[in-house]
Design a protein around this nucleic acid. Sequence first.
RNA 1: UGUCCAGUAGCUCAAUGGCAGAGCACCGGCCUGAUAAGCCGGUGAUGUCAGUUCGAUUCUGACCUGGAUGACCA
Length: 938
Amino acid sequence: MTDYKDTLNLPRTAFPMRANLAQREPKMLAAWQEQDLYGQIRRASEGRKPFVLLDGPPYANGKIHLGHAVNKVLKDIVVKSRTLAGFDAPYIPGWDCHGLPIELQVEKKHGKVGRKLDARAFRQACREYALKQVDSQREDFVRLGVLGDWSRPYLTLDPGFEANQVRGFARIIERGHLQRGYKPVHWCLDCGSALAEAEVEYRDKASVAIDVLFTAADPAALNAAVQAATGQDPGGAELPVGIPIWTTTAWTLPANQAVALGPELEYGLYEFAVEDQRQRLILAVELAADSLSRYDARNISQISVFKGEDIKGILLNHPFAERQVPVIAGDFVTLEAGTGAVHIAPGHGEDDFAAGVANELEIYNPVGADGVYLPGTPLFEGQHINKAADAILEVLTQQGCLLNREPYHHSYPHCWRHRTPLIFRATPQWFVNLDQQGLRQQALASIESVRWIPDWGRERIEGMVAGRPDWCISRQRTWGVPIPLFIHKVTGDIHPDSPALIEQIAERMDSEGIEAWFDLDPVDLLGEAAADYEAVKDTMDVWMDSGMVHFCVAQSRPEVAAPVDLYLEGSDQHRGWFQSSLLTSVAMFDRAPYREVLTHGFTVDEKGHKMSKSLGNTIEPQKIVNSLGADILRLWIAATDYRAEMSLSEEILKRVTDSYRRMRNTARFLLGNLHGFEPDSDLLQPDDMVDLDRWAVARASRLQAEILQAYGDYEFHRVYQLLHNFCVVDMGGFYLDVIKDRLYTTGADSQPRRSAQTAMYHVAEAMVRWLAPILSFTAEEIWQSLPGERGASVLLATDYPFPAAEKLSIDWEQIIGIRDAVAQVLEPLRAAGDIGSGLEAEVTVYAEGTSLAAMQSLGDELRFALITSAAAVLPLSERPESAVLAGEQWVVASASADAKCVRCWHRRPDIGAVASHPDICARCADNVAGAGESRQFA
RNA sequence: UGUCCAGUAGCUCAAUGGCAGAGCACCGGCCUGAUAAGCCGGUGAUGUCAGUUCGAUUCUGACCUGGAUGACCA
């Protein structure tokens, strides 16, 4: 028997089945770097329609985690898919480099500012630390296959950035949004600084709740007020009377300036006895019973009832300070807890502050930056507020004003870095005022012009902007961009020429960065007037840094000038970067800095629980990359619907790896069978192609439309599903299976084979582009194995232009349905051991209508489509008793009685028809020694 | 405690006021000319409870679970 294997065209390719991504990817990265792929793409994209994604800067501290990977890879998929779609899509990554966390790291090593290092050296240490972090994070991002201008990222510590930031700040001042305020702000004693809203988190805290008595300064006046309200003299003028307040922050009592009652709430005057001492208290009616039981009161009687408003203005004795404080009305007073009377320290609370302003109280703050009562504070001067609690309670007890104390658990604001309780402390701070120039309203209007994806993002940010307080932008820290202002020593006003002065400062900062401000001799700028002014020592909130990226980066990199097309971050950035960027942009330019804002969810484990170190359920991206490869991680990110939580587990990674292999293998099969195909000479025109091959091209072309749509809609999980199903169902399950016979057995340069190769070539060219944004490494590997002249990288190409669709002769969807039906009928034969492969069977299909027509037009080539040795088709009316119903048609199947062709494995009656080739069928003989067969349909 | 989002087979995703689809996984089989592959067949699901409706996975409400975010001030 002649060995005919040599006469077959079996697949050949150097493209390996095993990906070995962990080893292969770094080499590919080196090659990309070597050839400056990013730069090449920029040059190739010149003049195209721009699509700009502005990178939200990660904070330069710590190793990147899964969330970072998700964010950067999503951005990368967007940028690459837009590049392939023919846009000029630059990507300039950036880092957020100033701020407290870096200071804390440096403090760990060098101690606080002024101990081992002076401020200047400390800042230098911060700078060095941040740059080191940037380097390490950059390495990890690059390893993920994220393509961008990594050699020239933007850093908020770049002198140019810092200079532009103060220029932006000047613009905000010019437009009237800056305000200097003496207001209570969240203050972290460990930071020694004010905090922004975004830096506050609420945690449970165990406090001591106390009831403190404020005695009436003039009981007769109180009685008179009650009588005026109720029409009855309450009497009992000889008894002690007062109003008890309830508080969990005893340390604020030294700053007390008033007691607030709800103006519309009902209060009662109660008389009772404690240890046989009769006395009177005013309490909210609803809270009276609870409160009086706390005080062990007996023989209680309610003397009268009135509204809080009725005793407004009555004076009370401060429990220990030498002053009297008024009763005021406060709408914010509720009946949730306490006594219905709220102690007001305008220097230590927001409501308190507002009440203080409304009632012309002193905004008194006796607490220093370090939490110690300032010199001159009666009784407690020099004590730390956390330690003074006992002393305060003791004083209250001595004064007979401590009615009750008990432990109390509540949630309380904490510093999100130190996790320590915050205090409210009135200090002079700088604010971006949301209302004095209509910033809030304009911001809300700008939100309307932005497309928010998912759309609930709009409501979220609207609610936040509508409800937020003024933005406290000053920090009393070392590592940050200075607030470059001069304050008049007498009037407290900023220098009238501030914008111009800031420009002069910015010019110095262009080269020297923030040190230019700290080194500045005010005389150089202000001349003789310098003596009248004081330089501000505060730094800016780092949210100002990142919030001004849209302005600062564009000054040196005009290709990303605002407004940009897209911001893409985690959904937590509605309160963070999206908002800070919006506010600065509206403050400077009256418009949003972005057209679209896309958010993604957070990573969770397989049970849907968030990943955290304490739960021990974190998965490190570095680990995945170094074992499975970056493409596997990228595929997971693409395959997951990022609008909700994104869950990751060992099983999920396994599934992702499996589907990766399937796609890779499909590509490998295409490449293996494109062996020897030179598109320049071998590519057939659609007219010359076998009908099935034209179907494959048409199918791929239709799919491409869907895939591009999905990319355009940022629905990458749809891209993945479409791609994977195409590989499995259309290609593996049908087309590639069917054309194997033709590829292998017909002549290498024959029309039937070239036709199939032409189709596969089109499919491969398109598919490598579909894959490229997601499986960047693998796509590049495929690209390099594809035949034909091509550029250095798939990313230098644009979406594949399919040849114009030709009308098909066969309704292939019908044929696919019949194929499934035949497979069902073949299964029992196989189970019975009558046949093994489908080529051992012959079938007759009985059908009517369109499916009959489809099969009839295939004629003799039906058997190739069904992958059986013989296939006949007859009208339904002729079906015999033995026919089996499968789907809509009836099938008769049996094992073929014919001999097997050793070459093509079909069972044919014409084996040996050509005498010189006794072991092969006539078709094979023709292909081996004759003119070669021709195919029209399959 | 408020608001928002999500909950569809073991996993990843679909869909619809009218029999809930796909792929993977799993089970069974085939092939050995994609072979640490490939092909065929099969099993399997709407978080819970009510309501509206002829009919609800879809609409409404409550609850549960998870996530995000805000308020919690005295």
